[in-house]
Design a binder for these strands. Structure first.
Length: 801
RNA sequence: GCUGGUGUGGCGGAAUUGGCAGACGCCCGAGACUUAAAAUCUCGUUCAAGCAAUUGAGUACCGGUUCGAUCCCGGUCACCAGCACCA
């Protein structure tokens, strides 16, 4: 009788839900295990196969953990604020709340149909008042501690649509909607001072177990560099032109300086600069370029040499020319650099184009051809001459700078403060009030959540304002401090806000007194294992570590790092080997697979298709192979004998497979775990029968991967305890080996025959047997043995002449 | 450009303290069952030569170390990812 996957999957999903089999219990005596997967954005398109692969990994691990006796927390929720929902609402007129609820309902039913063992009593939705109340609460705490602040920035702005655009919506310098030229506009925006945590975020990486490439990406993102700040003089003034450099040792090679076009000092000395109109023209040209263009295009160096404005090297006293150029960014360092063309390729290119001197200060390269960034003996450098060690030269120079009072050691980060606002409706309102007398005043904690007001039209407001600016009843309020008339902040928080602390809310999702009960936070502690996509290992992962570290510093959470371990799954590509996308038409819908072949097949396939951490293309044919596997497993029911022990023939194979599957699951090697089960299944079919004990072990191992079919089989075997809660199979190392083994016999490194010997045979016995082997004699006849090796359990190698 | 990673059959991929390359699955071929097809089962399936036993070649390419190299070392090429004028 064939396996009716539809009826079986529905049946077991209902039983799991009714009995709350996968509920996590606060304060249970069992050891706890907290596994986290990245919660989905509930888009209208429904689930993607990528979600299935991402969730199936830890799904298997947590099902194994429960069988091993752990109290497992494996939650799911929805990261539901965001642009697609808002755009859909603008287009259709349906309220984002309604759209979100519909999409969440759809995702929930789809997730349940795959049979995931989530704790459905802990579902969270970042757009719910009970949730975003605490997102706002954390924001206010940050505001209190000076970590949330307002500052000017340049934004991409479309003067025709009057909206602020993201870099993605403004590529090529044109507005995506009306195609008019985009300008860079100065605007006051909210920032979170993540740079204050740069060193903590870097050091914290030592405490956690992240995959090496994930750790590296975080380090690069933070981008710490050490060097020195140096104050150059400005001829004819008391002004200091401050720069940052990682190579203070090359100070004697400075032949010019470059300032960012936006550098504020330029305006201050406008009257000194003889060619001001040239400066203004260049600035206008740069302002037109988006940040995207300015950094993406590697192009010819452009710039303007300032006339009448020169700098003075504070160590050598030499007068040097100053340029402005857009290869120097206002956002990094001090917005100005000392240029050492002999030892920096960018400065070299610039010097060649503008005819500036190039002075060698480090020997070793050929500066008539290109810059030499390497190490070597210092020359033309006064007190540094003759030094060969970079570190020493830098240290000597820094000391000199400090003695002269013209500079000091310094540290810089690539990471910038986090621009924390959007001019959009569907996000958490920023709970701040502007009062003419009191300035920025936080909304009192007991008035949280500051609710999103009901609205009809969610299109962005005019002049780059949020749609909320149009709602008078929301904007106009009284100052919580003095009671006078005041205005509310109308910007909302960015997408990343709600996901920066969601893992804490799962621990106590319904608490209305605190973001979570401290005792529960202590019980569940760190997330033991967090799996998600590579695309989130910089932004989301850093942002949430930052929030967590802040909450730790103010005593809200008990650990300094949120995640003990982080891994990432590889993408599922389309059948054509390219990333899935609607426009390519190569998207695979997981729901169709569930309907046609069953959830167990889908789960097995996404784990079997290849290395879990690497990208692999979807193959419709290979999915069928997994279907065959599941059906063959079901077929075992027709072969059961009542014995309650392993059969002699298969005992070692069973012990080996239990070991292999147990270890592979811990290591994200699901593909080889499943392959081992397939191999064992083939061996059973070769035998033609399976004992009850054997079958129970087999379905026990397969249960986390294919829970429905195995649960059904377990029931048919007459067992009343759910497989999901019965113990994980064990193995005995001593029983993993066969009595007799087959080894290869090589002559001069080439395999010539195979022999069967007792597993415990010693070298002499193995070599003696090997010399007799038929395939070997032909190659050793009439030769002398030079060397004879036996690698235990592997092979014999006979070296002859 | 920089940093990291990868390169194995027709395809997805196994195998590393240096020890039988190609596990497992897909595709493909042959056979069994069937009125037939599907499904299922059995066998074969790296390439080349041979009816065959077998022999030779083979883990991107070139070279080295070793009794023995997919694995270690040196060089070259290709692809992927992240960062990208970061001073």
């Amino acid at each position: 009788m064939g396996y009716d996957f539809k009826a079986s999957e529905e049946k077991w999903q209902r039983i799991w839900e009714d009995k709350k089999v996968f509920r996590a219990r606060d304060f249970d005596e069992k050891p706890k295990f907290y596994a986290l997967v990245e919660f989905p954005y509930p888009s209208g398109a429904g689930m993607h196969v990528g979600h299935i692969k991402a969730y199936s990994g830890l799904e298997v691990l947590t099902r194994k953990r429960r069988k091993e006796g752990y109290n497992v927390l494996f939650p799911i929720g929805f990261d539901a604020y965001g642009l697609p929902t808002e755009n859909y609402a603008i287009k259709t007129g349906i309220h984002p709340r309604k759209v979100t609820d519909m999409n969440i309902a759809k995702f929930t039913s789809q997730l349940k149909k795959v049979g995931y063992s989530f704790d459905w009593d802990r579902v969270i939705d970042t757009t719910e008042e009970g949730y975003y109340k605490w997102t706002q609460w954390i924001f206010l705490k940050m505001f209190e501690h000076g970590l949330a602040f307002r500052d000017k920035t340049l934004v991409n702005y479309c003067p025709s649509c009057k909206v602020v655009l993201s870099n993605e919506d403004s590529q090529g310098g044109k507005c995506d909607i009306c195609h008019s030229d985009i300008i860079q506009k100065s605007k006051d925006v909210w920032y979170l001072r993540i740079t204050a945590y740069a060193d903590k975020l870097l050091q914290g990486l030592d405490e956690v177990d992240f995959l090496p490439n994930i750790r590296l990406q975080q380090e690069n993102w933070i981008g710490r560099s050490t060097g020195a700040f140096v104050n150059f003089g400005v001829r004819g003034t008391d002004e200091k032109l401050r720069i940052y450099t990682t190579r203070p040792d090359t100070l004697f090679g400075v032949t010019f300086m470059v300032m960012a076009p936006e550098h504020p000092m330029l305006d201050k000395y406008k009257s000194m600069i003889g060619n001001w109109d040239e400066v203004e023209a260049y600035r206008a040209e740069c302002a037109k370029k988006t940040e995207f263009e300015r950094t993406q295009l590697v192009k010819d160096k452009t710039g303007v040499r300032l006339s009448g404005f020169t700098a003075v090297n504070p160590v050598s006293g030499k007068e040097i020319p100053v340029f402005i150029s857009d290869y120097v960014m206002m956002g990094y360092g001090t917005g100005a650099i000392m240029a050492v063309p002999a030892h920096d390729q960018r400065d070299y290119d610039f010097a060649k184009k503008f005819g500036v001197d190039i002075i060698e200060v480090i020997k070793g390269g050929d500066i008539s051809v290109e810059a030499y960034p390497g190490d070597g003996e210092m020359v033309n450098s006064d007190f540094l001459n003759g030094l060969t060690d970079k570190k020493t030269s830098i240290a000597v120079m820094c000391e000199k700078l400090e003695t002269l009072g013209v500079g000091e050691k310094g540290v810089q980060y690539k990471m910038k403060d986090w621009a924390f606002n959007r001019q959009r409706y569907w996000g958490e309102p920023i709970p701040i009030v502007y009062c003419d007398d009191c300035g920025m005043v936080p909304v009192p904690y007991d008035e949280l959540p500051l609710k999103l007001p009901p609205m009809e039209n969610f299109a962005p407001g005019s002049d780059g304002e949020s749609p909320l600016a149009k709602v008078e009843s929301f904007v106009n309020c009284t100052c919580p401090k003095c009671g006078k008339k005041a205005r509310r902040e109308t910007d909302t928080m960015p997408q990343w806000a709600g996901s920066s602390w969601y893992f804490l809310r799962y621990i106590d999702p319904h608490n209305d007194k605190a973001l979570a009960d401290p005792e529960k936070l202590k019980y569940w502690g760190q997330v033991d294992w967090y799996n998600g996509g590579m695309e989130h290992v910089t932004r989301h992962l850093i942002y949430s570590r930052f929030w967590h570290k802040f909450l730790y510093d103010i005593g809200v959470v008990p650990t300094s790092e949120p995640y003990k371990k982080r891994t990432a799954q590889g993408l599922i590509l389309g059948p054509d080997g390219v990333k899935m996308s609607k426009s390519r038409g190569n998207v695979v819908d997981p729901n169709e697979v569930v309907d046609e072949l069953g959830a167990d097949v889908l789960r097995t396939y996404v784990l079997f298709m290849g290395d879990y951490e690497k990208a692999a293309p979807w193959s419709k044919e290979s999915v069928r192979g997994c279907k065959r596997f599941i059906d063959r497993v079901w077929g075992l029911l027709d072969m059961v004998t009542p014995e309650t022990e392993y059969s002699k023939k298969l005992e070692a194979a069973f012990h080996r497979t239990v070991k292999k599957v147990s270890e592979d699951i811990e290591d994200l090697k699901y593909n080889t775990a499943i392959a081992a089960l397939m191999t064992l299944l083939n061996a059973i079919y070769d035998e033609g029968s399976v004992t009850k004990k054997e079958l129970e072990t087999f379905i026990g191992l397969l249960n986390p991967i294919a829970p429905h079919v195995t649960e059904e089989m377990n029931e048919r075997l007459g067992n009343t305890e759910l497989l999901a809660t019965s113990p994980w199979p064990t193995w005995d190392d001593a029983k993993c080996v066969e009595n007799e083994i087959e080894i290869a016999v090589q002559v001069n490194g080439k395999v010539r025959d195979k022999i069967v010997i007792p597993a415990d045979a010693d070298a002499d016995a193995a070599i003696a047997a090997a010399k007799e082997a038929k395939g070997v004699l032909a190659f050793t006849e009439g030769k002398t043995f030079v060397k004879e090796l036996y690698v235990k359990g592997r092979l014999v190698n006979l070296v002859v002449k």
